[in-house]
Structures are given as structure tokens and as C-alpha cells.
Amino acid sequence: MTLQELKEKLSLNILTEGGQLDRQVTGGYVSDLLSDVMANAKEGDVWITLQTHLNIVAVASLKGISGIIIVNGRRPDDETLRKASEEGIPILGTDETAFEISGRIYKILNDA
């Protein structure tokens, strides 16, 4: 499943420019603790979080995260979006909660 397909199925908003939406999503990880993501997320995971500050980009980039989904309608600051575009890490947004969006992604990935 590509990030583009996931975006369409879930009506996610793409917040970064020129993102690589052809990336494969192989799983997901939900956490707002950055060291937890460093320790436990896997390469190819989509990362679901409410954190919006700059450091999420470095964590995602180091871990080989396929994309970041920001929940609860939160919007990252411009600095985060600029950095993410630079690093080629797509950031997507949803008004849903982490619970709702994770449940839907889990189902989609398992049915795929």
C-alpha cells in the first residue's frame, strides 16, 4: 500500500509540499514519545502522533518512517513543514483522533 492510496482511502490532507507519496507503507506506529518511536517503530511504518514540532522530522528520517500523520486537526508549524519537505518526509493531517485513524489504518493494511 502506498501513502498515496492510504491518503485517498482516509481523506487525509497532505501538509508538506512535493512529498514522496509513492512510498510503501508496511505498518504503523502510534506514539507521542519520541524515544519510544526511535526504539520501537519500524522502517516503512506510518507514524501517527499529535506532536507537531520540528524534531518529529529528524526521528522519522532516522527511522525510515514512510510518513507522519498528525491527528486531532493539529497543524505543524511552518518550520516543521519546511524541514519535512526538505527531507522528503510527507506529513499528512486528519481531524480524527489517534484511536480512530489507527483503527482504520490497521484494517486497511490487514485487508490489503
Binding site: 519520541l34 524515544s35 519510544d36 506532536q51 514540532h53 524534531n55
Partner: peptide, 15 residues
């Protein structure tokens, strides 16, 4: 609040 300081840093390094 930034999601740091969860007490996992040093254990992660050791692991």
C-alpha cells in the same frame, strides 16, 4: 510536552 524526557534515552543507548 515535546515528547522527550520519557526516561528511555540512556536505556535505549545501552540496549
Amino acid at each position: 510536552e515535546l515528547g522527550w524526557g520519557s526516561g528511555m534515552g540512556l536505556p535505549n543507548m545501552k540496549k
